[in-house]
Amino acid sequence: MKRLTYLLLSCATLATATSCSKDEATPTGPTEYQVEYRISSPSAPVSDYISYDNESGGTTTLNNVPLPATYRFKRTMKRGDHLSLLASLDGGTAASEITAAILLDGREVKKETGRGTDAQAVPVYVIGQ
Protein backbone atom coordinates (compact mmCIF):
# COMPACT_ATOMS: atom_id res chain seq x y z
CA MET A 1 0.00 0.00 0.00
CA LYS A 2 2.91 2.35 0.76
CA ARG A 3 4.32 1.82 -2.74
CA LEU A 4 0.96 2.73 -4.31
CA THR A 5 0.79 5.89 -2.20
CA TYR A 6 4.31 6.92 -3.20
CA LEU A 7 3.64 6.22 -6.87
CA LEU A 8 0.44 8.30 -6.77
CA LEU A 9 2.30 11.13 -5.04
CA SER A 10 5.03 10.88 -7.65
CA CYS A 11 2.45 11.20 -10.44
CA ALA A 12 0.94 14.26 -8.76
CA THR A 13 4.41 15.80 -8.41
CA LEU A 14 5.10 15.00 -12.05
CA ALA A 15 1.92 16.71 -13.23
CA THR A 16 2.66 19.82 -11.15
CA ALA A 17 6.30 20.02 -12.22
CA THR A 18 5.41 19.63 -15.89
CA SER A 19 2.87 22.45 -15.82
CA CYS A 20 5.24 24.78 -13.92
CA SER A 21 8.35 24.25 -16.02
CA LYS A 22 9.95 27.51 -17.27
CA ASP A 23 13.55 26.52 -18.10
CA GLU A 24 14.06 27.90 -21.61
CA ALA A 25 17.62 26.49 -21.81
CA THR A 26 16.29 22.93 -22.05
CA PRO A 27 15.71 21.78 -25.64
CA THR A 28 12.04 21.17 -26.46
CA GLY A 29 12.81 18.66 -29.21
CA PRO A 30 14.01 15.11 -28.68
CA THR A 31 17.50 14.82 -27.18
CA GLU A 32 19.47 11.69 -26.35
CA TYR A 33 20.54 11.49 -22.71
CA GLN A 34 22.80 9.11 -20.81
CA VAL A 35 20.58 8.08 -17.89
CA GLU A 36 22.02 6.62 -14.71
CA TYR A 37 20.26 5.43 -11.56
CA ARG A 38 22.25 4.86 -8.35
CA ILE A 39 20.86 3.09 -5.29
CA SER A 40 22.79 2.66 -2.04
CA SER A 41 22.29 1.99 1.64
CA PRO A 42 24.70 2.30 4.55
CA SER A 43 22.47 0.00 6.62
CA ALA A 44 21.32 -2.80 4.30
CA PRO A 45 23.09 -5.11 1.84
CA VAL A 46 19.94 -5.69 -0.28
CA SER A 47 16.98 -3.68 -1.56
CA ASP A 48 13.80 -5.75 -1.51
CA TYR A 49 12.25 -3.80 -4.41
CA ILE A 50 13.50 -1.49 -7.18
CA SER A 51 11.35 -0.09 -9.98
CA TYR A 52 12.52 2.39 -12.61
CA ASP A 53 11.64 3.95 -15.97
CA ASN A 54 13.82 2.15 -18.50
CA GLU A 55 15.34 2.94 -21.92
CA SER A 56 12.07 2.31 -23.80
CA GLY A 57 9.95 4.38 -21.39
CA GLY A 58 8.53 1.24 -19.81
CA THR A 59 9.07 0.05 -16.25
CA THR A 60 11.67 -2.40 -14.99
CA THR A 61 10.96 -4.06 -11.64
CA LEU A 62 13.55 -6.02 -9.64
CA ASN A 63 13.45 -7.84 -6.30
CA ASN A 64 16.18 -8.62 -3.78
CA VAL A 65 18.88 -6.50 -5.44
CA PRO A 66 22.37 -6.40 -3.87
CA LEU A 67 23.44 -2.85 -2.97
CA PRO A 68 24.95 -0.62 -4.12
CA ALA A 69 23.32 -0.91 -7.55
CA THR A 70 23.72 1.17 -10.72
CA TYR A 71 21.72 1.08 -13.96
CA ARG A 72 22.82 2.98 -17.11
CA PHE A 73 21.26 3.39 -20.53
CA LYS A 74 20.65 5.93 -23.28
CA ARG A 75 17.18 7.30 -23.86
CA THR A 76 15.83 9.95 -26.19
CA MET A 77 13.48 12.34 -24.36
CA LYS A 78 11.96 15.77 -24.76
CA ARG A 79 10.73 18.51 -22.42
CA GLY A 80 8.00 17.16 -20.15
CA ASP A 81 9.18 13.52 -20.31
CA HIS A 82 10.04 12.07 -16.92
CA LEU A 83 12.29 9.59 -15.15
CA SER A 84 11.27 7.92 -11.91
CA LEU A 85 12.90 5.47 -9.56
CA LEU A 86 11.58 3.66 -6.49
CA ALA A 87 13.89 1.77 -4.15
CA SER A 88 12.86 0.25 -0.84
CA LEU A 89 14.01 -1.72 2.17
CA ASP A 90 11.64 -4.09 3.94
CA GLY A 91 11.79 -5.07 7.59
CA GLY A 92 14.62 -2.81 8.62
CA THR A 93 14.98 -0.80 11.81
CA ALA A 94 14.30 2.83 12.65
CA ALA A 95 17.92 3.50 11.62
CA SER A 96 17.55 1.90 8.16
CA GLU A 97 18.31 4.17 5.22
CA ILE A 98 18.22 3.94 1.41
CA THR A 99 19.27 6.59 -1.12
CA ALA A 100 18.30 6.75 -4.79
CA ALA A 101 19.68 9.21 -7.35
CA ILE A 102 18.93 10.06 -10.98
CA LEU A 103 21.77 11.37 -13.16
CA LEU A 104 21.54 12.77 -16.70
CA ASP A 105 24.72 12.96 -18.76
CA GLY A 106 26.75 12.47 -15.57
CA ARG A 107 25.03 15.29 -13.64
CA GLU A 108 22.90 14.45 -10.62
CA VAL A 109 19.43 15.94 -11.18
CA LYS A 110 17.42 14.34 -8.36
CA LYS A 111 18.28 12.48 -5.15
CA GLU A 112 16.14 11.24 -2.27
CA THR A 113 16.78 9.31 0.92
CA GLY A 114 14.21 7.23 2.77
CA ARG A 115 14.54 6.21 6.41
CA GLY A 116 12.82 3.83 8.82
CA THR A 117 11.64 0.24 9.04
CA ASP A 118 10.10 0.29 5.55
CA ALA A 119 12.37 2.93 4.02
CA GLN A 120 11.62 4.10 0.47
CA ALA A 121 13.34 6.61 -1.80
CA VAL A 122 11.27 7.84 -4.77
CA PRO A 123 13.03 10.49 -6.87
CA VAL A 124 11.17 11.78 -9.95
CA TYR A 125 12.71 14.13 -12.52
CA VAL A 126 10.93 15.93 -15.36
CA ILE A 127 12.99 17.09 -18.36
CA GLY A 128 12.97 20.89 -18.29
CA GLN A 129 12.23 21.00 -14.56
Score class of each variant (00 low, 15 high):
100 A>C: 10
87 A>Y: 05
38 R>Y: 04
120 Q>D: 07
80 G>P: 04
121 A>Q: 02
85 L>H: 09
42 P>E: 02
27 P>Q: 14
123 P>N: 08
70 T>W: 06
73 F>E: 11
118 D>N: 05
128 G>Q: 12
129 Q>R: 14
70 T>D: 08
29 G>W: 01
85 L>K: 03
74 K>Y: 13
40 S>G: 11
42 P>N: 04
31 T>F: 06
90 D>R: 15
34 Q>A: 15
82 H>D: 08
76 T>W: 11
63 N>Y: 14
45 P>F: 03
84 S>Q: 11
84 S>E: 07
91 G>L: 07
105 D>T: 11
103 L>G: 01
110 K>N: 12
110 K>E: 12
110 K>S: 15
88 S>K: 09
30 P>S: 12
57 G>V: 06
104 L>A: 09
93 T>L: 02
127 I>S: 05
27 P>R: 08
111 K>D: 03
40 S>T: 14
7 L>S: 07
57 G>N: 04
128 G>E: 02
27 P>Y: 09
52 Y>N: 05
125 Y>L: 01
62 L>M: 05
120 Q>H: 12
3 R>G: 10
112 E>V: 00
119 A>S: 08
31 T>D: 07
40 S>V: 01
115 R>C: 00
14 L>W: 08
62 L>I: 03
102 I>S: 08
71 Y>V: 15
8 L>Y: 08
98 I>F: 03
111 K>G: 02
118 D>I: 00
72 R>F: 06
26 T>F: 12
40 S>D: 10
101 A>W: 05
83 L>G: 07
23 D>G: 11
111 K>N: 07
45 P>H: 05
72 R>N: 11
53 D>G: 12
50 I>S: 05
25 A>S: 15
2 K>E: 12
79 R>V: 12
30 P>N: 14
75 R>T: 08
2 K>Y: 09
64 N>C: 04
72 R>C: 06
14 L>R: 09
43 S>D: 00
13 T>Q: 01
107 R>I: 13
8 L>F: 14
115 R>S: 04
117 T>H: 06
106 G>E: 10
2 K>Q: 15
22 K>S: 14
97 E>V: 13
66 P>T: 11
102 I>Q: 09
113 T>A: 00
111 K>S: 07
10 S>C: 11
17 A>D: 14
108 E>R: 12
82 H>N: 13
54 N>V: 09
12 A>L: 12
39 I>E: 00
100 A>F: 11
